[in-house]
Design a protein around this nucleic acid. Structure first.
Length: 295
DNA sequence: ATCGTAGCCTGGAGGC
DNA sequence: TGCCTCCAGGCTACGA
């Protein structure tokens, strides 16, 4: 499940393998994978062919590559990608056999292809215009303007996030998953950060003391950075491994997916709860359920 | 305005 | 073996 660290790994790969390349033929094999491109697959192809790929950028779980062009009416466009649940961006020789869930091929001028592969088609590609972020005013793709600065960005404002979090009236995990409050965190890193901060997911945000919020947001940042350090070592495999394997599934996780296994801190068996039609993993001893919990 | 939920989607796992 | 059900979850749209 690509969350911020995994998407950042992909961004670095794009930076290394496709920046500066010019796009040749583009082929959309699954229209659903470009459904966010409002004008349709053919328009997406037209807007991509002949463009030069710039330096890959990321905010939260969104990834984009600016499209340079001499044509002024096309200035300020970018190829936007969201990996959803199962999306991958692979760079492969154009002649390499198609992957099982290959959705979009983008031919490059160096004999390679940028390939969007996505089993469950929650992710997708689009060509969109850049606009000012509602949060910090930075140029981001139009569909990303509502996504807040993520914890790894230089402009990340701990005080601002602390304030916004404390003004919420909801459970703390719900808040962490809200990409307008803090971006880049999904189910895995929310659970890992809550465990690190020794906080239960149902803790009502309005009962959080300022110091607790700081501790939590620090835990979020630490968890993301550590995951990135782990993933970063194997990221190139994404682009050269014949299987296109990412290697981000075998990271060491304290609680996520660890039901009944011992908490690394105290040995108590990790518990799995139903939460938002999904799962929440906690150590029942390190993260006791609050008396007045809020989902 | 804010909060909470349904639905999108496919393949692997496990029960019978 | 094969059929069935459950489960994974980021995001948007929509209802309360």
């Amino acid at each position: 499940m690509p969350e911020l660290p995994e998407v950042e790994v992909v961004r670095r790969g794009l930076e290394r393998h496709v920046a500066g390349r010019t796009i040749g033929a583009v082929s959309v094999l699954t229209a659903r994978s470009v459904r966010r491109h409002a004008a349709g697959p053919q328009d997406l192809v037209t807007r991509l062919v002949g463009r030069r790929l710039g330096s890959a950028r990321r905010r939260g779980k969104y990834l984009w590559v600016p499209l340079d062009d001499a044509a002024p009416h096309r200035a300020g466009e970018a190829l936007l990608a969201h990996l959803g649940m199962s999306g991958q961006l692979l760079v492969r020789p154009a002649a390499a056999p198609a992957e099982r869930h290959l959705r979009v091929r983008v031919r490059l001028d160096d004999g390679n292809e940028l390939r969007f592969v996505d089993q469950r088609t929650f992710g997708g590609l689009a060509v969109v215009r850049l606009a000012a972020s509602a949060d910090d005013g930075a140029p981001v793709p139009e569909p990303v303007t509502h996504i807040t600065v993520d914890p790894l960005e230089a402009s990340f404002d701990l005080d601002a996030v602390t304030g916004r979090l404390r003004r919420r009236r909801t459970g703390v995990k719900r808040a962490l998953l809200d990409q307008t409050l803090v971006s880049g965190v999904g189910n895995i890193y929310a659970d890992e950060a809550l465990w690190r901060a020794r906080m239960h997911y149902a803790r009502p945000t309005e009962t959080l003391r300022r110091a607790e919020v700081v501790r939590l947001v620090d835990a979020v940042r630490t968890v993301l950075v550590e995951a990135l350090d782990d993933g970063g070592t194997s990221f190139d495999a994404l682009y050269v491994d014949v299987n296109g394997r990412s290697g981000w599934f075998d990271r060491s996780l304290a609680v996520y997916g660890q039901a009944d296994r011992p908490c690394p801190r105290c040995g108590t068996p990790v518990r799995r709860d139903q939460f938002m039609n999904r799962s929440a993993y906690t150590c029942p001893r390190c993260q006791p359920r609050p008396r007045r919990g809020r989902w």
